[in-house]
Design a protein around this nucleic acid. Sequence first.
DNA 1: TAAAAAATAAGTACAAATACTTAATTTTTT
DNA 2: AAAAAATTAAGTATTTGTACTTATTTTTTA
Lengths: 220, 220
Amino acid sequence: MNQTIRVVLADDHFFVRDGIKSLLESEKNIVVVGEATDGLEALEVVTTTNPDLLIVDIRMPHHTGIEVVEKLRNQNNPVKIIVLSMHESEEYVLKSIKAGADGYLLKGSSKEEFLKALHSVANGGKYFTGDISSILINQLTSSTASTLEPKPVLNEDLTITKREKEILTLLLSGKGNKEIAEALEISKRTAEVHRFNLMKKLKVKNLMELSNKATEYSLI
Amino acid sequence: MNQTIRVVLADDHFFVRDGIKSLLESEKNIVVVGEATDGLEALEVVTTTNPDLLIVDIRMPHHTGIEVVEKLRNQNNPVKIIVLSMHESEEYVLKSIKAGADGYLLKGSSKEEFLKALHSVANGGKYFTGDISSILINQLTSSTASTLEPKPVLNEDLTITKREKEILTLLLSGKGNKEIAEALEISKRTAEVHRFNLMKKLKVKNLMELSNKATEYSLI
DNA sequence: TAAAAAATAAGTACAAATACTTAATTTTTT
DNA sequence: AAAAAATTAAGTATTTGTACTTATTTTTTA
């Protein structure tokens, strides 16, 4: 469980790298296995050293840290990544999350927070510093806010079968019975029956109600 | 700007309150103006002392901390609120956000983080500890994830009229042409025409595609 | 106050969905 | 191996929507 965490540092400033390195190496189960001074080098070093964790600065020559995250994720590289940033920036934070970063720290964070983040990310968790939490909360409370509602659970014995779920998905994507029949290689009449049963089970009387209910109970 | 921050503490454990109090009072521009040992008392003390900030524990007799937040927000009380929790709990975190809390800390947080949270919340910010960031990120990346996508904007000259928007809303709520006609006191044929025009404008060929496109472009 | 845009509504023919029921196969669970 | 559940599919009559076009009346905007 408490194996050595192999880390790569990517930051174009020697002092920053050195600072982080000395901080990390005060911990005995962390070892810095590589360093990079720009985005391209970061990708290279990660590919060759295969570390557990990459700590990457956003502002770097030849690809930003966020681009590095994107590229690694597109390659399905499972390395954990903590993004470092100078200031709170909504754009950077959201882009990092979207790109698939596991953590986000400000350069001003304390040694304790740094290590906490590092360990939780290395263990498969996420750590986005409280300093940027307002950005996350904004995202969550703006928009539909539906995300915050505890999703209602389907009551009692209501069971939607596998096949019905397939039909439901196709229905919600805009397919008609005929298209569904073709897609699943069944008769149009069968598709109709599945649709009918779905509507009966969910007690709805038309497609839109079906769609609404399906979304409400996150059936898809 | 750096005025004294007036704080109320609500926690049913004397030791916790006392610990926080001594921590806070080591800061010179923070003063604890009230304490409460349960939810009801918290509401009372906040109402009478009108503090800048309430630090409230979740688990308390007579209304949980979250219920206290809800009640204060329903009364439009502008007090800033930091919720304290023993452990990371998705349910508690999400409920706190929904109730309108400005911050969320674990009881194990460091003195530094505590004070950082307190100051940023007192200054109108939000502070949700990094320890629970995985919950926030989950919320943001699950669901439609649409929250992270820049919402596409309707192209060019495409204009949906007021009436069409009304029809659209009714359509998406599951109404048929006849029902829409009745609701808007127009002929069923008129409702049909509006629906037809909508579908033509949005280049869709059935209700579900209309629904999907409407959602995608947040037309409703 | 024109001109443009929006809302209203009818007609027609055709396509699709609704609302069931019945029933033969498969597949899954016990 | 039997029972239960799921999938398949057909029949029938009725309702609703599709895909237009044409045209009058209101409302908005220039």
